[in-house]
Design a protein around this nucleic acid. Structure first.
Lengths: 146, 146
DNA sequence: TAATCAAGTGGGAAAAAGTGGGAAAAGTGT
DNA sequence: ACACTTTTCCCACTTTTTCCCACTTGATTA
């Protein structure tokens, strides 16, 4: 399971180390897409197959209008990139994906169960702060449902 | 069953001894997450599997499409850590988890039935004091209702 | 009360992880 | 075909983490 938070450098050649704890699970090839919220998603090939299938399936539980569906898919597929992990565990993040989330210098790399997210470090700490309060209430609710 | 209170040092390398009484039950690998209130939760792997299942939406591979679910999963999984217990029974608490509860110097380690909690020592003694009063009132109330 | 043992604490050395950069390879345009 | 840029691959340095050993403290018992 992919969990935890890591702050890594994005260097001049657009490379970022994938945290060691994620490497085994992610394999040698990954898919990077624009995420929802100010981040990127990273999927394993396997996970991406599941996700992309669902996304492109018009009858899925997504109640999108066809036009919306199309443009949403265009967005996800059009910007998705297949990326190799180099011999020492770094991935190369295409510049067109960096722009969207203002990535530079330091990136926060977050494990979220079966995907990885990449954030601008600052945006991540703001996100955390924002969610902290809501999360506690939500968690309490979940806890009570036991 | 995990019970009792222990005050241990958190050293410069972010290590804390797990009380001997907890070691057998916790095993060699644990999961640390932000808790409810000013503390961290420590789960056994087994317990975490239960908890994480409940947290994630079991019916949908696309739980990331829902904004609330997304932020909540991010918060819980992103701030969870799988941690090894070293050969003499210490665990390493990631700094990003320490920040949230202002952990430093002395930590209170509390057994709470099937999980362990970690508190800033001071926060814990305040918490105790607060609960003690409430408990007294509650007991009195219960007594009167007889 | 000294010796012994168990639990907890601290720190040095080795190993691993992360970062940076040079050189070879591939791609592009003239 | 050549010069020039971009990408890829690999090596080397630095920092962090892990592993292991040893000391301290406090309880136990002979």
């Amino acid at each position: 399971m992919l969990i935890g938070e890591y702050i890594h450098t994005i260097d001049e050649k657009n490379r970022v180390s994938l945290p060691v704890k994620f490497r085994k699970e992610m394999g040698k090839k990954i898919i990077i897409t624009p995420g929802l919220g100010q981040c990127l998603f990273i999927f394993t090939i396997k996970e991406w197959e599941k996700v992309s299938k669902k996304l492109s399936d018009a009858d899925s539980n997504l109640s999108f209008l066809k036009a919306d569906q199309r443009s949403f898919n265009r967005y996800m597929f059009g910007r998705a990139a297949e990326v190799d992990i180099d011999s020492i565990g770094r991935m190369l993040i295409p510049e067109f994906l960096q722009e969207g989330i203002r990535l530079r210098d330091k990136a926060a790399i977050i494990g979220v169960k079966d995907r990885v997210e990449v954030w601008n470090e600052k945006a991540w700490s703001e996100q955390k702060e924002k969610v902290a309060k809501e999360a506690e209430q939500l968690a309490e609710k979940l806890g009570n449902e036991k």
